[in-house]
Write a protein that binds this DNA or RNA. Structure first.
Ligand SMILES: [Zn+2]
Ligand SMILES: [Zn+2]
Ligand SMILES: [Zn+2]
Ligand SMILES: [Zn+2]
Lengths: 144, 144
DNA sequence: GTCTATATTGACAATCGTTCTCAACAATCC
DNA sequence: GGATTGTTGAGAACGATTGTCAATATAGAC
């Protein structure tokens, strides 16, 4: 009988996973898997695209990175403040500038809404999108 | 000279668009475009898949239906309470039961967060996922 | 260090939702 | 009816993501 627990992905430390984690450290906004794969190639790191996807999924499952699904269904990844726990994002549509947001009041509200309607195991997604000051300034400069 | 404004998609009333709108009336939860296409076929309505996608997009652009993007990137569509304006959703992961939520306090909070960080044209996505009472009961019955 | 078991990798195929193409068609207006 | 032009549909194309599986690298035991 297999009493041994099934081991999760991401057990071994490899050059590829280290590289994916490293490239995530270099940026501060949400990036697609293909973006990150390109960045790795430019750095000379040879990592297969499938491995980038696998590493990202493992890191996301482990709670080390956040995933944001765009309106057209693409997944973007970001290394968020470690140990920050649950939080949300304010994201610039122009340049991708991302600000982490905590809102205990909203967390309580979401939990209450679920309970009031008899729902259990409630989770939620909440993201704010807008145009940051820098991008507004740039647009104004171009229009001149 | 073309002084006439470019007309948006959805100008003409066709059998196909009427059919797509009708099938959306028959369900109360979020459905994928392919789901709706299947429903139409079963009803004997002959509508091309591309037309289903086009109709849904037109209706969404017009604000007549809501789109919910799942974690794996699929778009789901739902006819929400007409004239209800901006709102959010509480969705059962099991059966898809959907409840529309209004939360003016959260709207104000989101707007404030954006303004405080210098963001303009702020929008947001907010959805709550859980397991409804019925689905909990069903699970309990099956485990017996 | 060597050996072994097995987790991991990568090139490529495959999948799947969605959009594009464009000739045939049909709604609207005269 | 006829002209105009938005709309349709079958299939190809697309793009992100996942599956395949033989070759490889890692961690641990010896
Ligand atoms: Zn910006
Ligand atoms: Zn939250
Ligand atoms: Zn349910
Ligand atoms: Zn809102």
């Amino acid at each position: 009988m297999a009493t041994e627990a099934r081991r999760a992905i991401g057990e071994r430390s490899t050059r590829q996973r280290t590289a994916v984690a490293a490239v995530l450290q270099e940026v501060d906004d949400f990036r697609s898997a293909q973006d990150l794969h390109q960045m790795l190639r430019r750095k000379g790191e040879r990592v297969g695209l499938a491995t980038v996807y696998r590493s990202l999924r493992a890191m996301a499952d482990a709670g080390d990175i956040d995933i944001l699904v765009t309106a057209d269904g693409e997944s973007l990844y970001r290394r968020c403040g470690q140990g920050a726990g649950h939080h949300h994002h304010l994201v610039c549509r122009g340049c991708g500038l991302t600000i982490e947001i905590s809102a205990p009041a909203v967390e309580r509200w979401a939990s209450t809404v679920a309970v009031d309607h008899g729902f259990t195991d409630a989770q939620h997604t909440l993201d704010i999108f807008g145009t940051c000051q820098d991008c507004v300034d740039q647009e104004a400069a171009q229009a001149r």
